[in-house]
Design a protein around this nucleic acid. Structure first.
Lengths: 108, 108
DNA sequence: GAAACAAATGAATACATGTTCATAGGTTGT
DNA sequence: ACAACCTATGAACATGTATTCATTTGTTTC
């Protein structure tokens, strides 16, 4: 199985992706580096809110930051994160199976 | 990009996996169907807590339930979920890259 | 150096959520 | 039908967290 540390680390990552605005921020960076201002205007969120979220995402390396002049650009740090996200998004599009009836005998 | 509905749906899934106990519950079902009692004893959680979590996991189809006699067994519903989880777990083991310095010029 | 711009931070708050306790529902055997 | 077992549910509470507002830090340009 998983050690407690692994579980906590993985859960922390999931937890951060589990907030729609934060997920949108990360998803918007899939196409390439974006400045805080660009993220803010694209998503229609307040600068402060975006910045708070970015700090959390940076902390768990879901995003990395780099300065270019006055602005700071955020991007996906490595291919693992990128693959993970694209995989999840692909799964979204795939067909769902039927509901299972709890009373059905062979339901296991 | 992603529609608002897709974002919310994906975030909901991530959110549920973002709680260590809940993630452990799902992970423990990767090896095969488990009854509520087995999950409870394996993870050392209260029966009530496990049941509450199971209800949420069922609701988003991260787990499915099936009755066998007095007990109810929970399992991974389809290969999508299973692949997703195993992929994430594999990513856990892979090496991390170095920290980026914010002041570095070519950091983008 | 001052003004202007971009991003980060801290405090405060309203809201969501994980957990526990007690109780109810449903199933099997006697 | 009753008792024993397994699971689900509801209320209550304590904790965590997303968001806003105001302020600050850092960078560029004049």
């Amino acid at each position: 199985m998983l050690t407690a540390d692994q579980t906590n680390g993985l859960a922390e990552m999931f937890r951060l992706l589990g907030e729609p605005n934060r997920l949108s921020i990360v998803a918007s960076c899939l196409d390439g580096p974006l400045s805080v201002g660009e993220i803010t205007s694209r998503l229609g969120l307040s600068q402060s809110l975006v910045s708070h979220h970015l700090r959390l995402l940076r902390a768990v390396r879901l995003l990395k930051a780099g300065r270019r002049g006055k602005q700071i650009f955020y991007s996906i740090p490595d291919c693992h994160v990128r693959e993970m996200l694209t995989n999840m998004i692909e799964h979204l599009a795939e067909p769902h199976e039927q509901d299972e009836d709890l009373t059905e005998t062979g339901a296991i």
